[in-house]
Design a protein around this nucleic acid. Structure first.
Lengths: 217, 217
DNA sequence: TAGATTGTTAATCGATTAACAATC
DNA sequence: TAGATTGTTAATCGATTAACAATC
């Protein structure tokens, strides 16, 4: 029921690749042109064999004793993730969270370009958000179809998340990045990626409780 | 190297518990007082046995043919996650993302209360953010110690994440929830939970590419 | 009672780690 | 050359799923 592989790449691998990419991009910026698994693994506190296996999914081969050629590695990871082409996206919910995502330039380096924000609040519609217009939600379907938008980002309050998701599906959106603290349901064929902050917080809270308890002994 | 269990609870279980909690809280609000694993599993599209095993970690026992008593289940999950007590937290970075987190009331139901925001930008310091003051970062260490704050939330740009983390560690913070798109390093004994949006986006991008490719055939 | 659901043990599956030959 | 690192296969580990008796 849960997809464990995408395109033959295990999901855990897929989730680690951006960390590798970030690190080797930083290395590239310092002028280095080769890197070993050992080096990456140390920085990210992972097992070197795990890194090697992950990198193998990109098809890149390294040189024994030397490592991997950084420019080729960057290109291969970007290509595997589809980040070598920037895809346009629409965002719904022009609140603080929406504004934060609109204002983050780094997404361009992750293949994502948020081209417009939508809202129903008349105080927000018509304003500019980080050089992008805030449009009324009524215009979503028409514009999404005309501009061939495939990615929708949900940053509305919990109670409106499902209706926004429904609108996105009707408008031909193929992938939804959901930041609302509610699971949204969509027909099969449409992808949903839920950003579950509560899952992250659960790990944090429980770890903290465990260390505080240990500290008192 | 990676912790797979916290307090004897596997991390994957820990990450699913908030979803269960959200669902059964919603059921409780409709007046229901029992729920079966089958019912939870269907809603969240998980295997019923998996849900049963996860719920067993809370220590709650169900009744065959009936299910679990909802109020006891809610209490047990909240207790396990430490969400039955609200913990105060400080946030650093009063930008849009910081404002979004400050304004989200739902954290109170997740055991988290952000009591103040800090920044170095003179245009932000002194202002109010969702009824909480924005203070100068210089005051972080002193106030954290005096108020016995254990949780720090980082919502500053990438390039300042590590220095903020260092300050938090020096100030006695025991757990850092890091929203900056950069891994921060801390001494052992301090917990870091990184919210890696790029990991989530990697899964979304790759799935989308796979379905678009499939659609063209 | 009959049947749905729990609790529990065993089987499977997949991800991570260990071992080691090949090689630059 | 010697030693570090790759690529690859095998072993381990842990998480999920299947099977099934107990029970309300």
């Amino acid at each position: 029921m849960i997809t464990t592989e995408v395109n033959g790449i295990p999901v855990p691998t897929l989730r680690r690749l951006p960390s590798y990419l970030q690190f080797i991009r930083a290395l590239a910026a310092t002028g280095r042109d080769v890197v070993s698994c050992t080096h990456i693994a140390e920085h990210l506190r992972l097992d070197a064999t795990l890194v090697r296996k992950d990198l193998q999914t990109t098809g890149i081969v390294g040189k024994p004793k030397v490592g991997y050629y950084i420019p080729a590695l960057i290109e291969a990871i970007e290509h595997l993730l589809g980040w070598d082409n920037v895809t346009d996206a629409f965002l719904v919910g022009a609140g603080n969270l929406g504004a934060a995502l609109m204002g983050y330039d780094g997404f361009r380096e992750h293949g994502l370009n948020i081209v417009a924000a939508f809202d129903v609040d008349p105080r927000k519609v018509g304003r500019m958000l980080h050089d992008k217009q805030v449009l009324h939600l009524d215009r979503f379907a028409d514009l999404a179809a005309r501009m061939h938008i495939h990615i929708g980002i949900i940053t509305v309050p919990e109670q409106h998340a499902q209706e926004v998701a429904d609108l996105m599906v009707l408008s031909g959106i193929k992938a939804i990045w959901n930041f609302a603290p509610a699971d949204v349901h969509v027909p099969s064929g449409v992808i949903v990626e839920n950003v579950r902050l509560s899952a992250s917080l659960a790990v944090l809270s429980t770890r903290l409780a465990a260390t505080l308890r240990a500290g008192q002994n």
